[in-house]
């Protein structure tokens, strides 16, 4: 599914190398987690994969089902099946949530050569998905993320994911700012989307999210590289001992 080889990335504006050779391979249907201390490059990795401006790939590659992601525009990556659930979902005053969702869905369909969804079918689809995420109709009527609480914003990200049905989902600190109940709700939303053909990359600081979204593989990232890879037990080790032991000898 997703394959990253020796990825080196620097900030465009300054001469600062953030990623220094990331290797990662996620198979279809797998759930991988990346943990790591602040500043290790986790969010940068998610931004570079989704096509945010301001980063320069100096070496390496990233492919989705064999297709070069790094050459594509952000919207092309989305149409190819990549989705990033933002750590800080963006507020867009004046753009209604429903208009946004429908525009996005139809644009992706069009890009894939599929037919656009009718207004009626779309409404049905949104209502159904929103219900399971406990998103009320009032929230859907508002402008994108405007006036949403932290938890509502994260649920809205998962709603978008549920509607767009990507095959590669990256969750960037989706647990940040969530209370226990909200985290459970969001995790249930994610788990409902787990399937053989869909993979996840879950970026988090804390092991607790991984209690709800159980990963197949856990990676530890530090100083722009993946320094250790293991099973779910690796996350527990971090939770108990912190990163200090793992970081010895790195940097």
């Amino acid at each position: 599914m997703l394959e990253i080889k020796n990825l080196h990335v620097k900030l465009e504006a300054e001469d600062k190398q953030i990623l220094k050779g990331v290797d990662l391979k996620i198979g279809a249907g797998e759930v991988h987690a990346i943990m790591g201390p602040n500043g290790s490059g986790k969010s940068t990795l998610s931004y570079v994969l989704s096509g945010r401006e301001g980063y320069e790939v100096t070496e390496g590659e990233a492919t989705l089902d064999g297709v070069d992601l790094l050459e594509m525009e952000p919207e092309e990556r989305a149409a190819a099946g990549l989705f990033l659930a933002f750590q800080y979902p963006v507020e867009i005053p004046g753009v209604g949530n429903m208009v946004f969702l429908r525009t996005a869905l139809n644009a992706q369909r069009k890009a894939r050569g599929e037919e656009e969804i009718s207004a009626g079918d779309f409404l049905k689809l949104v209502r159904e998905k929103a219900k399971t995420l406990k998103i009320d109709a009032e929230m859907l009527k508002r402008p994108v993320n405007v006036g949403f609480s932290g938890g509502e914003k994260k649920r809205n990200e998962i709603l978008q994911m549920a509607i767009l049905e990507p095959k590669m989902c990256i969750l960037d600190e989706t647990d940040s700012g969530l209370d226990v109940d909200a985290m459970k709700l969001v995790s249930e939303g994610v788990n409902a989307l787990r399937s053989e053909g869909r993979s996840f990359l879950v970026i988090t600081h804390y092991q607790r999210l991984l209690d709800h979204i159980k990963p197949d593989v856990v990676h530890i990232m530090a100083a722009g590289r993946i320094i250790k890879t293991g099973g779910p037990e690796l996350a527990l080790e971090v939770e108990n001992n912190g990163y200090a032991d793992l970081l010895e000898g790195v940097v």
């Binding site: 919207e75 989305a78 933002f86």
Partner: peptide, 9 residues
């Protein structure tokens, strides 16, 4: 960027 990341050209 947010809009484009959702597939909007």
């Amino acid at each position: 960027y947010y809009l484009r990341s959702r597939g909007v050209p």
